[in-house]
Simulated scan of single mutants.
Amino acid sequence: MTTHWIDRDVSAQAVPVSVNMVDRIIVGETAPMRQLKRMIAAVAVSEAAVLVRGPTGAGKELVAEALHRASGRKGALIAVNCAAIPAELLESELFGHEKGAFTGAERARPGRIEQAAGGTLFLDEIGDMPLALQAKLLRVLETRRIQRLGASGEQTVDFRLVTATHRDLTAAVADGTFRADLFFRISVFPLTVPSLAERTADIPLILARLIEDYSSTNPAAEPPHFDLGAIRALSAHPWPGNIRELKNVLMRAFVMLPGRMVTARHVRDNLLGMEMPEPETADIALPEPPAPQAKGDLPDPSQFHDALQRLGDIDLRGYIRDIEVALIEAALDKRQGNVAQAADALRLRRTTLIEKMKKFGIRRGLAA
């Protein structure tokens, strides 16, 4: 039985558009993530510069995307990784150049700041920017004017600045490797992205989104399915690489355990320990979780007794979960996706059924 997790409260009503936009981009419902998303929604519509802080791999670029998308700005989001471009090339990358400005400049080229006109400029790892270039960036932020290398005049550029770093810029200011005036200019609104270890309760939601994204671009891939033991094992991992590391673990699961139910042992031995899993065995299976149309169609308990006698140990919680999912899906099918009527058929309150659907990732009947 396939089990997924829903990644947001799609039943919520009367939520500001900016919050819905942020919620679609950034996955997480733990307290620090709800606080972060509220802050993003509040500051997105302003022109204030935002400094995004957090460990490597935590998803700082998603915060920049959410800020841009929720801002309503019509221009593009232009991203520059200051640590990935050699210092001698970074100035040309940011400011652009005219034809003949230097050896090899065979044609004029707009810089990233110019390309961000009407939109958002995202400077990732700004803590790695050379001091000389920091001074030039500060002047751009003060005047909103840029000059291409080799040009004789300046031009005005309207852009929103978002920066990010994993470094302690306060310490960098103290030791003289980062300008204090630039620091105060870029950190009008500092936002902190928590590490994955600080929000392990979000792991099922993040996995569901990653599986959905990967499956949409690789439709032939068989997604793995994580049982509760696997989720607990993932939650116990320290995640030094944060979400980037979790993506790697999921890719291993797609390769090593396609279409299989991933257990805690698989997580420890195969996905984290990098041992090849044993082939799936043809064990005697339990009866399929029931999808009854009427009370009289429920399987007789003796079927389970006989299967257990032959099979031995099972994951009871996982099997009961699969039964619950099957019954909810059957009730929704019988009531053409009407959640209220399905709740009546299952003798549940509508709100209780919605919570269960969210928990199991059953989207049918929930508003998008």
Score class of each variant (00 low, 15 high):
172 A>F: 00
176 G>D: 05
194 P>R: 11
226 F>S: 11
201 A>Q: 13
220 A>M: 14
179 R>C: 01
174 A>M: 11
218 N>C: 03
216 S>G: 03
213 D>S: 13
180 A>I: 05
159 F>Q: 03
226 F>W: 11
210 L>H: 11
224 P>C: 08
161 L>D: 04
202 D>G: 09
157 V>P: 08
173 V>W: 06
221 A>D: 14
192 T>W: 04
158 D>I: 10
198 E>I: 08
223 P>T: 10
197 A>H: 12
183 F>Y: 15
164 A>D: 06
185 R>Y: 00
158 D>Y: 04
185 R>A: 15
164 A>V: 06
204 P>N: 05
161 L>C: 02
222 E>M: 09
176 G>R: 13
159 F>M: 15
179 R>D: 09
185 R>P: 09
179 R>P: 03
171 A>V: 02
159 F>D: 06
180 A>R: 15
215 S>K: 11
171 A>G: 10
218 N>Q: 12
184 F>T: 13
201 A>C: 03
216 S>I: 05
215 S>E: 12
185 R>S: 12
186 I>Q: 04
224 P>R: 07
184 F>C: 03
181 D>F: 02
192 T>A: 13
158 D>G: 05
183 F>A: 06
205 L>W: 08
161 L>T: 07
177 T>I: 07
166 H>W: 01
220 A>C: 06
206 I>V: 15
209 R>W: 03
226 F>D: 09
206 I>H: 04
223 P>R: 11
174 A>P: 00
221 A>G: 10
166 H>L: 03
225 H>L: 01
207 L>T: 06
207 L>R: 05
168 D>V: 00
195 S>H: 01
172 A>N: 01
212 E>A: 15
180 A>T: 02
178 F>M: 08
185 R>Q: 12
205 L>R: 15
204 P>Y: 13
189 F>S: 13
206 I>Y: 02
157 V>H: 03
178 F>S: 09
217 T>L: 08
188 V>D: 00
189 F>W: 09
211 I>D: 02
200 T>L: 02
